[in-house]
Amino acid sequence: MLDIQNLKVVFGTGRLRVEAVKNVGFTVKQGEAYGLVGESGSGKSTVLRAVCGLAPITGGRVLVDGKEVTTPRSKDFYRTVQMVFQDPYASLHPRHTVDRTLSEPLAIHGEKDAEARILQALKEVGLGPSFRFRYPHQLSGGQRQRIAIARALILRPKVLLLDEPTSALDASVQAEILNLLDDLRRRMGLTYILVSHDLAVVAHLCERLLVMRHGEAVEETAADALRSGKAMSEYTQSLIQASQGFTRNPSQPTYAKVG
């Protein structure tokens, strides 16, 4: 479904030249969920942005459904690939109602039957018709992210790019959104690329994943391997350890409690 070969992304020139992504490649099969994990500056989000055209492709190729993407992207591309952003507070237009936000992609692509499709989209993400005419400020963070997902799905894309879709949300809301994403993928046969700094989130949603660091791929592994702790680079191990919570070094002087 998605084939990325030797992708390279460079920003700026001269002294300001930054190689954000260096020769990263992976393939994602139809209906699969693929994770990109790394810390800030690892280039994981840049890969996603390069796929959808928000960042330049300096070198290498990006193939969607066997066809290389064009710059600027065609209208067909946007019907196949859609994206959900990290911060639901920044990804919805503050002056547009939910209705307007959802009808915009339909209007751009000249789709008919907007009314029914908006209601359908709201239903798919677990919101009722009462949400249709609300402004973003009348919604909670989780509800906003549901609207952002509905907006991405309303054109019936095959690939969904998820850029840290839950990291701005509370833990309990994160669980709801993860369940929704899991469920939607199964029902609609979607292909996901999920970017996250949270190994547990990636392992939960994806089958395979790529660990990135400083713009380079560190290792590609499967979620099952991650769980069982098999075949892993040192860096991945340190990420796993850090995600388990704080551990006190036993060699440090133990803390004496007073009172």
Binding site: F77, Q82, D87, A90, H93, P105, A148, R151
Partner: peptide, 25 residues
């Protein structure tokens, strides 16, 4: 902002983004 990036990713033309999304703000 992300909401402008989002309409771009829906395939909106530049005039559409300027008139429908930027000017109202």
């Amino acid at each position: 902002t992300d909401f402008i990036a989002a309409v771009k990713l829906q395939g909106a033309s530049t005039p559409r983004i300027i008139f429908g999304h930027v000017i109202p703000l």
